[in-house]
Write a protein that binds this DNA or RNA. Structure first.
Lengths: 141, 141
DNA sequence: TTATTGACTTGGACTCTGTCCATCGTAGGA
DNA sequence: TCCTACGATGGACAGAGTCCAAGTCAATAA
């Protein structure tokens, strides 16, 4: 069993085949799947799994801090299992490809007190935008 | 007529009452309305304006670079008329209130070449997250 | 091993956001 | 004032996500 499943069970998560498959689909680096993509991959191993269960499970993993919800366009949210190493995202404006990146420095340090308007600022999400190598080569991309 | 309407007309934008009302609704600082909010406000002045027209007009304003589309959650996109001064956003995690902020430094400078994976990086959006003064005071927020 | 039970899953209905399209209306030039 | 191409309309449609009542099953206890 993976570390993730181990941790979840340790936290009292009731282990079902559906939850196991969803957690397994999310393993790896630079994984940023939409809920529908997770559902499609999970359904390869467990054909009868429902969309509602995938949504429920993803929501729980996010609440537990095991998965990060990423929003880069107005489309579907993406789910990033790399929750235990702080990072930001680099997105291709043409094809949507996404990589985890680790900038030097902290964006929080760049927001002076007079720009905080009395907010208690706890974090910052950075999305770097550009063209990936494949789309740079592709003419007209 | 406002500067915005002046500029649009100068660019050959055909001026209709609908477009005028949408552009007027978007005036001001720290304005981040959803399409539905824009529609509701526009409809106060022009009750028969349709949703499709609001979406069309917002899309054109974005294409023309007069308005910026902002995505902070998986919900509705927001429209920010502050397109001529580079800025980032500060969002309250509890109530969604949003302010424009101007961090010192450039996030791009924090992304070293070895973290760019061959991408041509052209920009970075930063979303600072925290609690606004009202939600800090409100217990349980 | 079996019984029990409350948590989990299911699928379908529903909401919200946004897009598309055929038709109608009108801004602005001739 | 008339024309006409561009814009507005509203209703159908699509994608993403939520909700709920009913059925199922993992984990515990006996």
């Amino acid at each position: 069993m993976s570390d993730l499943l181990e941790r979840l069970r340790g936290r009292g998560w009731r282990m079902t085949s559906q939850r196991r498959v969803v957690a397994e689909v999310l393993e790896g680096d630079h994984v940023h799947l939409t809920a529908d993509e997770v559902h499609a991959r999970a359904a390869q191993r467990l054909p009868e799994i429902s969309r509602a269960t995938v949504y429920n499970t993803l929501g729980e993993l996010v609440s537990l801090g095991e998965v990060i919800e990423v929003v880069t366009d107005g489309r579907a949210r993406r789910y990033d299992p790399n929750a235990h190493h702080p990072h930001q995202h680099l997105v291709c404006s043409a094809c949507g490809t996404m990589r985890d990146v680790s900038p030097t420095g902290s964006p929080l340090a760049d927001l002076p007190a007079e720009e905080r308007f009395g907010f208690t600022v706890s974090g910052a999400d950075v999305t770097y935008r550009g063209l990936c190598p494949a789309c740079i080569r592709r003419p007209g991309a």
